[in-house]
Each structure stands twice: as C-alpha cells, then as structure tokens.
C-alpha cells in the first residue's frame, strides 16, 4: 500500500522540488509542504545520528591510545590507532570466560524457550481439545497478575534450590505467555487438512507436530527464537541475584562490575564497599562495551526483518 501511494506523488527533495508526471492531476506541492519535508528529513536524520553517534564514539575511542584520551579533548576519530585495550582485556581470561558463559546461557536458554513454547502452544491451538479453555485462562491470568519479585525469588532460590546454578537463569523464564499466545494463533492458522491427512497416514500428534507443523512455521520460530536469544544475551538481573560464583557470570554482569560498580564506588568515595574495584582506564571500558555489543550488532542488520515481523504478528492480534 505504501508503494502505491509512493507512485501517486513521488517527489524527492534534491535541493528543489521535482514535479513527477504520474502525480494525480491537481496535486501541486505547496511551499509549506516543501518546507515541511525539509524539516522532516532533517529531524529524522538528526534522530538517526543521535542514535548511532554514542555507539560510534565508543567504538572509535576504544581504538585510541590512553594518552590521546587523556590529553586531547573531544574527538571522534583517533589520530593514532591502537589495539592495546583489546589486547589487555583478552589477556585475562575473565572476559573470554564471561563471553563463553553468555553464549552457553543464550543457546541453552533459547532451546528451552522454544521447546516449551511450542509444546504448550500446539495443543492449545486445537479447538477440540478438552480442558483447553481453563488452561488458556490460567495462562492469560498470569499475564495480568503475578506474585511479584520476592515470592518469585523465594520460589526459585529457596524452595527449588536453584540459586548458584544456571537452572535459575534458564528455567524461570522458559515461556513468555505473550509469545506463546502468538505462536498458538499462528498454529491455528495452519490448514487443518494438512494435519488430518498426516493423521490418516498414521502420524500421531507428536509426529504431526514435528513433520508437518514445525517445518511450516520455521519463520515464526526463527523470529521468536531471536527474541528469546536477545533477551538471554542482554539479561543481567537474574544472573546478579541467583549466581554466586563469579566464574559463572555472563558478560553483562561482568560489564556492570567493570564499569558501573567501579565508577559508582569511586564517585561515592566509599572505599569500604566490598564491590570496590579500581576504575579501569577509559579505553579499556570502551573496549569492553564494544565486545559486549558486537555480537548483537553483527547479526542485527540481517535479522532486522524477522524482528519487525515478530512485532507485526503481535500487533495484528492486539
């Protein structure tokens, strides 16, 4: 639809107004309209620059020498490039281990998420299933009301005894009720005849799911898998409250330790703080930020359309 409208009055600003012949008769671009377009383009460009500039600044400055960072004030592109900061952070295996932990948590967590989401969503997509309504109500109610932070913490840490293990990070968020409902709605849209014919050919429900339904819903699974994966990669809170051994810490938590806790305790002047760490040099902080961001930034441009599709699917339902 957007394309159609574009064709109707395509007029681009290259310093001047271009009157396009296929514009509907009687449409003239008024001066106000042109001014509006100029401002519009300018504001959006500015917004986009504001979005990327901090990230670019961090990336470029992480390659600057510590001397340049201390002496030269305010620059984006360093004069002399150096990889000292990266050599320094990869010399200790703390960061590499944290990176590995994050990868492990993300891969296992996402697999658990997808397994539980699909196995819950598929039966609930069958309208003839007995007890379907009450189970759906159980799910929907949990979207509006929750026990809150503390009871959830007590259940995981003391009643189930998961604290100190990765289970506490992987299991408590196994299903997002919202994502599950969207996947369920997608399954409902798959033609029933396909599954019936599979049943006639002797497939039980489990085999139908694996052989017929899952191959048809790969794009949806990819989308939600990505959402879950980004969630795991970016999360720090459950790791912070449940993990005790800092050898198990994921990257985000190490990042918090290196930059935020160190900085805050330095500015507090409370050297009694047990978390106190000597604030690292600027370039090292920046290099750590880059290492933690790069994996997402590398995959993001290629996967953007899946992410957007995921939001759209949810939006249509809502």
């Amino acid at each position: 639809m957007a394309k159609k409208r574009q064709g109707a009055f395509t007029a681009q600003i290259n310093g001047k107004t271009v009157v396009i012949s296929n514009a509907p008769v009687g449409v003239y671009r008024t001066v106000g309209s042109v001014i509006f377009d100029c401002i519009n383009y300018a504001v959006i460009t500015l917004a986009a620059i504001t979005t990327v500039l901090p990230i670019l600044y961090i990336i470029f400055n992480s390659f600057a020498t510590e001397f340049e960072l201390q002496t030269r004030s305010m620059f984006l592109i360093p004069h002399t490039w150096s990889t000292d900061a990266y050599i320094y952070i990869f010399a200790s295996n703390k960061l590499i281990r944290a990176f590995g932990n994050s990868v492990f948590i993300t891969v296992c967590g996402t697999l658990i998420n997808l397994f539980c989401t699909v196995t819950m969503a598929y039966p609930l997509s069958k309208k003839y299933l007995k007890m379907r309504k009450p189970i759906l109500n159980i799910v929907i109610f949990s979207m509006f009301f929750s026990g809150g932070m503390i009871p959830g913490y007590i259940v995981v840490s003391s009643w189930l005894g998961m604290s100190g293990t990765y289970w506490a990070l992987l299991i408590p968020g196994a299903i997002s009720a919202y994502n599950m409902m969207i996947v369920k709605n997608f399954f409902q849209g798959i033609p029933q005849e396909l599954e019936e014919s599979a049943n006639l050919d002797g497939c039980n429900d489990l085999m139908t799911l694996v052989r017929i339904v899952l191959p048809l819903s790969l794009p949806v699974l990819a989308t939600f898998g990505l959402f879950y994966a980004v969630g795991h990669w970016n999360s720090y809170f459950s790791a912070m409250i449940y993990l005790t051994d800092d050898k198990m810490y994921p990257l985000q938590l190490i990042l918090r330790q290196i930059i935020i806790t160190a900085e805050a305790s330095a500015s507090d002047m409370t050297l009694m703080d047990p978390d106190f760490v000597e604030p690292p040099k600027e370039s090292i902080k920046m290099a750590v930020i880059v290492v933690a961001t790069v994996p997402i930034m590398c995959v993001y441009p290629f996967l953007q359309k899946y992410f957007v599709k995921g939001v759209m699917v949810g939006a249509l339902k809502g």
């Binding site: 901090p54 961090i58 980004v230 990042l255 918090r256 930059i259 902080k285 930020i289 933690a292």
Partner: peptide, 14 residues
C-alpha cells in the same frame, strides 16, 4: 537490542 547494562555503561563513559 542493546542491553540496558550497555546503555548505562555508555552513559557512564560519556
């Protein structure tokens, strides 16, 4: 897609 830890870290640096 950038984690909140990174957003706050960037803020701290900048």
């Amino acid at each position: 897609f950038i984690s909140i830890v990174i957003v706050v870290s960037i803020t701290y640096v900048i």
